[in-house]
């Protein structure tokens, strides 16, 4: 599971466990679009405390772009009547950092990205502390809303063996993109993927004087 998504699952479960949302959490549904092995990720999420899962099957090697995932999630959130969608701030493969914002835009919902703290108040209000350049800022909105998680939000739990066993019995619904009226067309064509130029270490020096003279030689001092 993408590490930021672990934070999302953990936060959902904590909101329920700590009864921090007035009215409680009725249902935690996790969704993943990908090849069959995405089901392992969904089982892990259910072992952490999610109630049920939806697997949107996508052919192996057919990656969806963030805009497509956002459209899928919009359809799913409406279909499942969700009023809070929590996503990771970015995936650590594509590093795009887009899906949550796109989803909020498509739904017309408030967004709070890069959350390091989520607090519920009266009347469905949610205050979110966000990590920004140079520090943090706090914004407040009413449900329904979209939150994306940052590293400092929480410490995800490990799934215990009994919970892993229980997760096997939790419902996992299989769907296709067509069930949500989505096609996997692509706007970006990857022309090539290359390795970045390798950096060669320049070796070591014996002492601080050596360090200073080498830095001078390199023009860094």
């Amino acid at each position: 599971m993408n590490p930021f998504d672990e934070l999302s699952v953990e936060e959902s479960v904590r909101i329920r466990e700590r009864k921090s949302a007035p009215g409680g959490v009725e249902d935690i549904c996790v969704l993943s679009a990908g090849p069959p092995k995405a089901q392992d990720v969904l089982r892990t999420a259910m072992a952490m405390g999610a109630d049920r899962a939806i697997h949107v099957e996508v052919k192996e090697g057919e990656d969806l772009e963030p805009l497509t995932v956002a459209k899928l999630l919009k359809a799913a959130a409406e279909q499942q009547k969700s009023n809070l969608v929590i996503l990771g701030k970015q995936s650590i493969d594509d590093d795009a950092n887009q899906t949550g914002q796109m989803l909020a835009g498509l739904l017309g919902w408030p967004q709070a990205t890069q959350a390091s703290k989520v607090e519920f108040g009266e009347g469905d209000t949610v205050s979110v502390t966000r990590e920004v350049d140079g520090g943090v800022e706090t914004v407040r909105a009413k449900l329904p809303m979209v939150i994306t998680t940052d590293l400092r939000l929480n410490e995800p739990r490990y799934a215990s063996l009994p919970n892993i066993m229980k997760a096997k019995k939790k419902p996992l619904e299989k769907k296709t993109l067509a069930d949500f009226g989505i096609t996997a067309d692509k706007r970006l064509k990857v022309l090539k993927v290359t390795e970045p130029p390798a950096r060669q270490g320049g070796g070591k020096v014996e002492d601080v004087d050596g360090l200073i003279s080498k830095l001078k030689e390199l023009g860094a001092l």
Binding site: E65, P66, L67, Q98, G100, Q101, G105, R187
Partner: peptide
């Protein structure tokens, strides 16, 4: 990072 993907979605454009 916060604003542009929302703009892209409203324009139906896949951000880079």
């Amino acid at each position: 990072k916060n604003v542009m993907p929302r703009v892209a979605a409203l324009l139906d454009s896949q951000q880079i």
